[in-house]
């Protein structure tokens, strides 16, 4: 599946926040063999210049970057942030977040659709952080989005795929749209499950960054994503309610 005409080298998208150190972040990105890394923008102080060191690091990592609009609660903030990100990171890709609720960090889907339309018309390639709602998904596509990023569970919660039925329905409804589970994945089995559902990618941050050994966890996610993708392509069996013997009954000796 192409993301705005571009193939990803890996379906694992990795966030860059919350790592114990820049060195550990770098080793996690390498172990994950991430296809994309997400980045952000924050205020730069004249004295510290923290952003300049981070910019050098991401240049060294040499992985495509997807800037986000994290923390934006209004359309205006998100649109302005996207413009600043496009200039700083030299990419028209934007992971669009318009947050609607501070406790759950769930997207304000009304503002999201509006911001997605404004940015798409302005030449941005929008990756909208959304819910699994089919109608919202339709509106986002009509607004110009060519990728959808439904949440698995609230950001940073690690609760996995909260609504497997909804995510499966989204996949079935939009077979040709690149779909990414963004947010809520806690352990590699969650990522494998998303890939088994036929999702095209997963975006992980906290689950890797907050693990005891982020680099090892990054490797675990790489393997899980690879396994889940292969499983989907291999066409899994249907689950059933009753047992069915796997060993043939024919030829069984009569020993009773």
């Amino acid at each position: 599946m192409l993301f705005y005409g571009t193939p990803l080298t890996s379906p694992l998208m990795l966030g860059t926040a919350q790592y114990p150190s820049p060195e550990i972040l770098a080793s996690a990105v390498r172990e994950a063999q991430a296809g994309v890394i997400t980045v952000s923008l924050r205020r730069e102080s004249a004295g510290q210049k923290a952003g300049q060191a981070f910019w050098s690091l991401i240049r060294e990592l040499n992985v495509p970057v997807l800037p986000n609009t994290a923390g934006c609660h209004t359309v205006k903030e998100a649109v302005t942030t996207a413009h600043m990100a496009r200039e700083v990171f030299e990419t028209d890709w934007i992971k669009l977040e318009v947050i609607g609720d501070s406790d759950t960090l769930q997207p304000d889907v009304f503002g999201l659709v509006e911001a997605a339309r404004i940015l798409s018309e302005d030449g941005f390639k929008v990756f909208p952080y959304t819910t699994e709602d089919l109608v919202v998904a339709e509106r986002l596509l009509a607004a110009g989005c060519e990728v959808l990023m439904p949440w698995g569970a609230p950001i940073g919660s690690g609760r996995g795929l909260n609504n497997v039925f909804g995510l499966r329905a989204l996949r079935a409804h939009f077979p040709d749209v690149p779909l990414v589970v963004d947010a809520g994945i806690g352990v590699p089995s969650h990522a494998a499950q998303a890939m088994e559902l036929g999702y095209d990618a997963v975006l992980i941050n906290t689950a890797v960054a907050k693990a005891g050994d982020p680099a090892l966890m990054a490797r675990a996610f790489r393997l899980a994503v690879e396994a889940g993708k292969a499983a989907f392509e291999a066409d899994p069996m249907e689950a059933r309610d009753m047992a069915a013997p796997s060993t043939p009954l024919l030829g069984r000796p009569m020993l009773a």
Partner: peptide
């Protein structure tokens, strides 16, 4: 005035 620079993000 807001001045921003690259930073870690999810």
């Amino acid at each position: 005035i807001e001045i921003v620079a690259p930073r870690q993000g999810g």
